[in-house]
Amino acid sequence: MQALDRSLDRVRAARRRDLLFAALALLLLFVASLVLLGLILDLVLRGAPHLDLDFFTSFPSRRPSRAGILSAWVGTTLVMVVVAAVAIPLGVGAGIYLEEYARRNWLTDIVEINITNLAGVPSIIYGLLALGLFVHGAGFGESIFTAGLTLALLILPIVVVATREALRALPREMREGAFALGADRWQTVAMFLLPAAGPGILTGIIVGLSRAIGETAPVITVGALTFIAFLPPSPVGSEFPWVNFDWLWSPFTVLPIQMFNWVSRPQPAFHDLAAAAGVVLLVMTLAMNALAIYVRYRARRMLG
């Protein structure tokens, strides 16, 4: 009887500890979300009054009431198009190669170690690298294309690692089943593995793009401007072939730089504008996330 009592006591004590830990975890979660919520709320409350059409269609100005983010949001959008177009195929491709094709040898080991380490390199280093490599070395100049390449490079490790993790999480039976049905390696990857790993890869891509959209330092280093009262050439024309890529070579600015500049100004009215720009940046990031969740949902349904 006594032995039973003692072990029951132990169980009870363990349960109490469990409960305590759960309560502590919940409390921490609560505090963390509260801080985040507070920050977002402050941003929205201060920024919201400035969020009118004029704010989106005006160039920067010395007068807070006239200043807008036209050049900044257009620049951010165009840069992100380049980032997505470069980082997604390159990162996913590299991930597939490393996980499914590459033989285990010292060369792949080195590549692997480097990719993992690259994820921890401060972003300004990428800016300096890009300044030498893209701006002067390759002669791309201080352009949207250079900024896109730089940020793509910055998020490449994130995309590669996410792709690899997603592929690695798939059961071996899936590959073996595909091989047993006579599929070759590429067919296995394209028809079975990629669709199944899609949600994981997509999450990695979104994390990467969300990081890229908020970067300031590397973009300033490669020559992003602050005051620019004109827009890049339109990507669509009225004549054949209706698209042109001149905008890739255009000078530009991005939202985080405009925010950074406004935050450091002495006049409080500019700080509110920075909050408004922050809301826009937040909404752009959320919209990207929402799009990814939607695509993921569709992909799951198609698989199911």
Binding site: L70, V74, T77, L78, M80, V81, A84, A85, F230, L231, P233, S234, P235, V236, L291, A292, V295
Partner: peptide
């Protein structure tokens, strides 16, 4: 693909409205 479609549409709109 969907993503590119949506971004593309945004660009087309922006570009048309603001060409200089």
């Amino acid at each position: 693909m969907r993503r590119h479609g949506a971004l593309g549409a945004l660009l087309v709109l922006g570009g048309l409205a603001l060409a200089e």
